[in-house]
């Protein structure tokens, strides 16, 4: 009797084989599902035809990129996007550092509660944020599009800068701060000479990530634009409604390229997972 060992049941082994085959297939499908639309967009961006024709394009050109770059409406959107995101991220980074520093000093219970509160915009639907903010800002009399956009993008970016700063502050060894203060440095000097330099890369990484998030936003920005202040993604959406052509494909490719560039820089700095990952509960 060989109880327990069951060499006489080949169907079990076959079932195991089937299961791993199925999970492999699912991975391939998911991969295709994620990448094929992007691939098609990339291909179409270089289409030399002047209309939306069937795949594959018979020949390639850069005409859609030229059109995008010479379109005053879209270029205005790009300018606004860059300005809104830069302004928002700079403020968000400063606010994130200040908030994270405060959270780092209060008792762990309060800190956890407040962190959850500050990071909560991440789970509120952007449409709700956009609408609520539009309502609030018009109530208090702020109607200028640029200011409204910056406000909206602050809400979008602050959670990321707070998270990143908390994670990088947690990475600074407390005994270093004690050593510095025993050597005669007061609290402000300890912060500027020890804490900040050691946490800086993490803070910058958080800001870059927040910038990428801000550049890509449509849902919140949609509510906050006006006739002259609109972001590039919003411009692309409305352009698509008016006349559907492949300028969007070219613009999308440039956005993707830009985001990839940012992520690469980010990864070089600290590693992406540190910013996207468990920032709420720094190890």
């Amino acid at each position: 009797m060989s109880a327990g060992l069951s060499p006489s049941r080949p169907w079990r082994r076959r079932l195991d084989g089937m299961l791993s085959g199925i999970s492999g297939a699912v991975v391939v499908l998911a991969f295709l599902f994620l990448l094929v639309p992007l691939g098609i967009t990339g291909l179409m961006a270089f289409d030399s035809r002047s209309y939306l024709g069937p795949l594959p394009p018979p020949s390639f050109s850069l005409q859609w990129f030229e059109r995008f770059l010479s379109d005053p409406y879209l270029m205005q959107g790009l300018r606004t996007s860059l300005m809104v995101s830069t302004t928002a991220v700079l403020i968000a980074a400063a606010a994130g550092v200040a908030t994270a520093l405060f959270l780092n000093r209060v008792s762990p219970r309060w800190s956890e509660l407040l962190t959850a509160f500050f990071v909560s915009p991440l789970i509120v639907p952007p449409v709700v944020i956009g609408f609520a903010l539009l309502l609030f800002l018009s109530q208090v009399g702020i109607v200028e599009g640029f200011v409204r956009l910056v406000c909206g993008h602050l809400i979008l970016t602050i959670p990321y800068t707070i998270r990143a700063t908390l994670a990088s502050l947690a990475g600074v060894d407390r005994t270093l701060l004690e050593a510095a203060s025993s050597l005669g440095a007061n609290e402000r000097r300890v912060f500027w000479e020890i804490t900040f330099p050691l946490a800086r890369t993490g803070i910058v990484a958080g800001a870059i990530f927040a910038f990428a998030i801000s550049m890509d936003d449509v849902a919140v920005s949609m509510f906050l634009t006006d006739a002259t202040s609109y972001t590039l993604p919003v411009a692309l959406v409305s352009n698509m409604r008016a006349n559907f052509d492949l300028t969007i494909a070219a613009a999308s490719m440039l956005l993707v390229l830009f985001t990839i560039l940012l992520i690469v820089v980010l990864d070089r700095l600290v590693g992406v997972d540190r910013v996207m990952g468990q920032g709420l509960h720094p190890a």
Binding site: D173, T175, L176, E178, A179, A180, P197
Partner: peptide, 9 residues
């Protein structure tokens, strides 16, 4: 300190 606490930067 036990773990030296030198400023790494």
């Amino acid at each position: 300190f036990q773990h030296y606490a030198l400023f790494p930067h």
